[in-house]
């Protein structure tokens, strides 16, 4: 029984890693420049310094790496949150984190902080906005030392509303040039020129994956219900607290680097759960890998579907994600 399960897990991981490699290679081979895949090995080995080498390694590769980090982080955050809340409709953006980050970035644009400390102001202000919301939601939901999960959800939804209204207020009052910057950022993109930020995102999301592993058994127990988990000897409060902060951190990181890219954190956990079941030991890593592949795939579509246009990647994730989600919802027999 145990051997069969491990064999199954190995197969799942193998398939997901293969899919990730395949999608990444495909992303590396497709693009507006029309470099034929057959020539790519030649360019990689002998083309250093040429324009084509630069297209592959300075334009396409950073996007693939960032897609890996952001897709993985969002998907992992979604899995964690759905696990804590035992609610299939929670996703990283439900808790108002993205709203807070958007508000932070809008304030940065309107008050011209980027003019003072440079472009790094965008991710910093986004992250600060996210952190403020996390602290606020967390503070409001802490009652007598316990974290009320339903409370968090409702507060988060309200914070989402408030921040999106404030963003609209800022947009209505701002100059057209600022408006423009806000819209750009909100649309979300993996086009990040600063490699340092890309690596920060990679390290952050992989770090989050490692930390989440220490809590997968606790989360499995939590699936039975909080009281039952306490009886099994799980420190439920600590688990919820750490995982909530971890998920918030992953979301804040993603939103601050890549803007708002929806649906990855909602649908990937669901899809993966259909294959792996609800055991978080395999679910976390699978969701991470699948989220990474999904976002890289969506980004490749976004930049190639209507050339020479480059669509916002959120458009693609939203359309594919939304359609798949409605389909999954309509199949009630699948436990979400």
């Amino acid at each position: 029984m145990r051997g069969a399960r491990i064999r199954r897990w190995v197969i799942i991981l193998f398939v997901l890693i293969a899919a990730l490699i395949l999608v990444s290679l495909m992303a590396l081979c497709t693009g507006a420049a029309g470099i034929s895949p057959a020539r790519i090995p030649g360019i990689i080995y002998g083309g250093k310094g040429t324009g084509e080498y630069s297209i592959l390694f300075d334009i396409r590769l950073p996007r693939i790496i960032l897609g890996f980090a952001i897709g993985g982080a969002l998907s992992l955050a979604g899995t964690i949150l759905q696990g804590i809340f035992r609610n299939p409709l929670v996703e990283p953006y439900t808790l108002g984190i993205s709203g807070g980050a958007s508000l932070g970035v809008c304030l940065n644009i309107v008050f011209n902080w980027y003019g003072v400390i440079g472009v790094i102001a965008y991710p910093i202000s986004g992250f600060l906005g996210a952190v403020m919301v996390i602290l606020f939601v967390y503070g409001l939901s802490m009652k007598a030392g316990t974290l009320k999960t339903q409370g968090i959800l409702l507060t988060g939804v309200m914070i989402s509303f408030i921040s999106s209204s404030l963003v609209m207020l800022i947009m209505a009052l701002s100059h057209s040039e600022d408006l423009h910057g806000i819209v750009f950022w909100i649309m979300g993109s993996l086009d990040e020129p600063d490699m340092l930020l890309v690596w920060v995102a990679v390290i952050g999301s992989l770090g989050g994956l490692v930390v989440s592993f220490f809590f997968c058994l606790d989360l499995n127990a939590l699936a039975l219900g909080e009281e039952e988990a306490v009886h099994l000897g799980i420190n439920v409060e600590r688990t919820k607290r750490v995982l909530f902060i971890l998920a918030s951190f992953l979301t804040g990181l993603s939103v601050s680097v890549a803007g708002i890219i929806g649906f990855v954190g909602l649908i990937i956990p669901h899809l993966i759960r259909m294959f792996t079941g609800t055991d978080h030991r395999i679910l976390f890593i699978s969701a991470f890998l699948a989220g990474a592949s999904f976002l890289i795939l969506c980004d490749t579509l976004a930049r190639t579907v209507i050339q020479p246009f480059e669509l916002p990647v959120g458009v693609i994730t939203g359309i594919i994600g939304g359609a798949v989600f409605v389909y999954a919802l309509s199949r009630r027999q699948v436990s979400l």
Partner: peptide, 16 residues
């Protein structure tokens, strides 16, 4: 309810 305001943030509006 969450999706609505979030999607409301995306369209271009009078950009520039």
């Amino acid at each position: 309810a969450i999706c609505l305001p979030a999607s409301g943030l995306r369209p271009g509006g009078p950009v520039g």
